[in-house]
Simulated scan of single mutants.
Amino acid sequence: MKDSLSRRDFMVKGTVALGAAVAFEVSGLGGNAVRAAEALATQGAKEKTMPHISVKLWPGRSEEDKKRLAEAIAEDVVRITGCSESSVSVSIEDVPSEEWKEKVYDPEIRGKEESLYKKPGYSM
């Protein structure tokens, strides 16, 4: 059994549960249907807890530039994924150029074509 619902499944089940809750409240049966709707809403909130973005740069950018970059990335993530701004985290790590191949290129780029949505214009 799946631990989480897709966004579409959540909306469908949430709508059904909400409709059932309203029907039970109107009929005076209440209680369980309301709790079911609340449980689905909680599941939906868990689905929106994401993502973390890790950025690696050569040293030399100012703290202000890093903050502006993190804010711009977070804004785009919120706009594109539909998650809440409070769910997004961004880390920025300086990696010296002489360590780039060992710490970034080999472990995170080379051989990762299936998950690399923007490929670099260089190779090492």
Rank of each mutant, 00 (worst) to 15 (best):
K2P: 15
L5F: 12
R7C: 00
R7V: 08
F10H: 15
F10Y: 12
M11D: 14
V12A: 13
K13A: 10
K13R: 11
L18D: 08
A21G: 12
A21R: 04
A21C: 13
A21W: 05
A23M: 09
F24R: 11
E25C: 08
E25S: 14
V26N: 06
S27K: 07
S27P: 00
G28I: 08
G30N: 15
A33L: 09
A33D: 10
V34L: 14
V34C: 05
R35H: 11
R35L: 08
A36S: 11
A36G: 01
A37R: 14
A39P: 00
L40W: 12
L40F: 12
T42V: 05
Q43S: 11
G44L: 03
A45F: 06
A45V: 02
K46A: 09
K46N: 07
T49E: 14
M50I: 07
S54V: 13
V55W: 02
V55E: 03
P59E: 01
P59L: 02
P59K: 06
P59G: 02
P59N: 04
G60D: 06
S62C: 02
R68T: 04
I73Y: 00
D76V: 06
R79E: 13
G82V: 13
S84Y: 14
E85P: 00
E85L: 03
S86H: 08
V88I: 04
S89P: 00
S89L: 02
V90P: 00
S91F: 09
I92E: 09
I92M: 10
I92F: 11
E102M: 03
K103F: 13
V104D: 01
V104G: 03
Y105W: 12
Y105Q: 03
Y105S: 03
Y105R: 02
D106L: 07
I109P: 00
I109W: 01
R110H: 04
R110D: 01
G111W: 02
K112A: 06
E114K: 13
E114Q: 10
L116M: 12
Y117W: 12
Y117I: 05
K119E: 08
P120H: 07
G121L: 10
G121C: 02
Y122V: 11
Y122Q: 04
